[in-house]
Design a binder for these strands. Structure first.
Lengths: 207, 207
DNA sequence: GCGAAACTTTTACCGAGTCAAACTTTGAGC
DNA sequence: GCTCAAAGTTTGACTCGGTAAAAGTTTCGC
């Protein structure tokens, strides 16, 4: 069985169809202005089926979360010996940026995406909930490695804060209308500033 | 007019009544198991009135947020000269702990409260949303003071992470059934560990 | 091809939250 | 005190997200 049956292919196709239809409608009209029933109809499927694939309406839009979570924990778990989690993530962020990956927060492609995200409280809430899941996953990895539960949790939180803030900063600029290319050019320094703060501490800022 | 009219007193009384009735029911049976209609009836008021005072159901339980936000920003804003925001908050947390304040996360009074909070996803989500509001408020204060927007935002995020993690740690132990007195005794070290990480950095943890 | 398992649809339902219109209470001025 | 306007409350109807159960429909193993 597995991933080659007709069944499985159809499922993936349906899932993708629903997700695409939904995303299209959201970008066109905004998250709150589109109902699940509408999405279902537009995708030629029943409302119940939509919820079969996506437990919450928000997940229709934020469906890359699982991949992102997996990717980020892998970065920490499989980092080279002698490299700290902080350093590994710093490099990863630089990598995302220079490859123009959407999650670096500085892509040309779609202010539409960021607009949808920022203009819906429910969606932003879910976004930040996903950030917390990332922090929890980090904490688990670090605790496994070191056995120090509280310290791991703290470090996980701080690292996640860096990632989130870096992202939010870029997103904010894009939404505010800044030129994507400019944002992108300046983003490397932002990444370093954030990770420097986590790695070396805030000191006595602001004096 | 102002805060001495009968009108205003009645409003405050109604608000308090609704909040108390709601909290009581939540602690008794859990957040999801109580409907707003039920709360309204128990408080002898209409459902609409409940929503008049508390825009979301979650706010019925987490109604101390405004005070907490105010208190925390004041701590930063009015800290003595030569004391960093980080240090001021560290001291504040120690103060909360030694005065047995609920928000220190280590009180004897009510595992009920923490149980309600942790057992409802909607409630925890709202809780963390409030943490983000705190981070945003911190960022605003720090930006006003220093003019460095991104750095302020990062530091605000890191400080908030410390507060949140300290709190979550204590709450987790209480909910898990640890003796409140023990948690309380060990909490001072937790506070210092958290703020040390923020102030001096995570370094190369975990090697 | 047959039967079981998986997927979808239908239908009915619940609870949060909104809206508008009617109704009641309070406060101010005379 | 009485009256009028404003503030607050209630009612009832409605929308939408989400769940549950049962009845189809499609795919798969044999």
């Amino acid at each position: 069985m597995a991933d080659h049956g007709l069944r499985e292919r159809k499922k993936q196709a349906t899932r993708l169809l629903i997700s695409n239809v939904a995303t299209g409608l959201f970008i066109e009209r905004g998250f709150e202005e589109v109902t699940v029933a509408e999405i279902a109809e537009a995708a030629g499927v029943s409302k119940m089926t939509v919820f079969n694939y996506f437990p919450r309406k928000e997940d229709l839009f934020l469906d890359r979360h699982a991949d992102r979570l997996e990717e980020l924990t892998t970065v920490i778990r499989t980092r080279p010996a002698g490299v700290s989690a902080c350093e590994a993530l710093r490099r990863h962020q630089h990598g995302l940026l220079s490859s123009g990956h959407p999650l670096s927060g500085a892509i040309a492609g779609g202010p539409g995406f960021w607009w949808v995200l920022t203009s819906s409280p429910a969606l932003t809430a879910r976004w930040y909930e996903q950030e917390r899941e990332i922090a929890a996953a980090f904490a688990e990895v670090l605790t496994e490695e070191t056995g120090e539960a509280f310290r791991s949790r703290m470090v996980a939180g701080l690292l996640t804060t860096a990632i989130t803030t870096i992202f939010a900063h870029a997103m904010g600029r894009i939404v505010a209308g800044d030129e994507a290319e400019v944002v992108r050019r300046e983003q490397a320094a932002v990444i370093d500033e954030a990770f420097d703060l986590v790695e070396r501490g805030v000191g006595d800022f602001p004096g």
